[in-house]
Design a protein around this nucleic acid. Structure first.
Lengths: 152, 152
DNA sequence: TTTAGATAGTTGCATATGCAACTATCTAAA
DNA sequence: TTTAGATAGTTGCATATGCAACTATCTAAA
């Protein structure tokens, strides 16, 4: 069939994958060099709670595109480091509201310059038009895979 | 500083990251639904060996952007499943040449339609021009992070 | 008011990852 | 020819991930 002849190496998938790997490598490296005890994944959680304090685990898991079990373990580590706290919901004993601690807020603040540097590096020599096209295509790709992802 | 005001959520990094996560989710799902005993990571190794049989572990690790220790363990699992074999280099006892087995080749063949479907899904409603811009910007981003990555 | 099904979060298991330290081997320079 | 440094691959450790099965709790319908 026609299918056999799709050019895998020049399709968007591998290019996207490789680019993200490169970015993640330098992000982790940046945190390490700044002496921050933090992974990229934990940073994303801090970021979300920073703008949406009080989410419960299920809500947060949806936002960060992670399985709730994976997130639960991530949160445990962050709780041990005193970056976040879990507070049992008042109206539902099963559920926890998540909050940044002052320590967590402080750590997040320290990631700012590192993240900004990475963003600047990513977008070096990328024009406004190119950036706009990138984002619109990325949105399109996400929505090609179904509504569930397009709203995140 | 100016730095504080960079718009994290609308920068390329998070958009790229999310998109890749969505793609990977459906790729894994596709393999599972087809009954293939294979992860995305193992598929990438099969793909590389398919076009470059005989690479050693260090060479392959560079190509797939993985730490050699991570790759070593990936290869062990694939060797156990009889997808690949390691053959000690004739001229250097430290080094292994890696080869696909017939089983590995067969499994890789079976991933083809799944991968093609994902690629088609990704590129739905993405014009040739958009795709070209995407790839050129992704290349640019990779090279922004240094020569070491730009050639992979 | 009982209870079946839904929901929030956890745990077991298997996979994947990178760094640092290690072994075995090779190579190039004294 | 010896040997110091380089190189290929492995192992220990800590992290991250998703699926399936689980517990505790809640909710809506009989």
């Amino acid at each position: 069939m026609e299918e056999q002849f799709i050019d895998f190496d020049n399709s968007l998938g591998p290019w996207l994958g490789k680019t993200v790997k490169v970015i993640q490598y330098y992000l982790h490296k940046g945190f390490k060099e700044a002496g921050l005890d933090l992974t990229k994944e934990q940073m994303i959680v801090l970021k979300r709670l920073h703008s949406h304090d009080g989410l419960n685990q299920n809500e947060l898991a949806l936002l960060v595109l992670r399985d709730k079990s994976s997130l639960a373990r991530l949160l445990s580590k962050m709780e041990r480091k005193n970056y976040i706290i879990k507070v049992q919901c008042t109206d539902d004993k099963r559920c926890n509201n998540l909050f940044l601690t002052d320590v967590g807020r402080e750590v997040f603040k320290k990631t700012r310059p590192i993240i900004n540097e990475i963003i600047n590096k990513i977008e070096t020599d990328v024009s406004k038009e190119e950036k706009q096209i990138m984002i619109s295509v990325l949105k399109k790709i996400q929505s090609n895979f179904g509504e569930s992802f397009s709203t995140i």
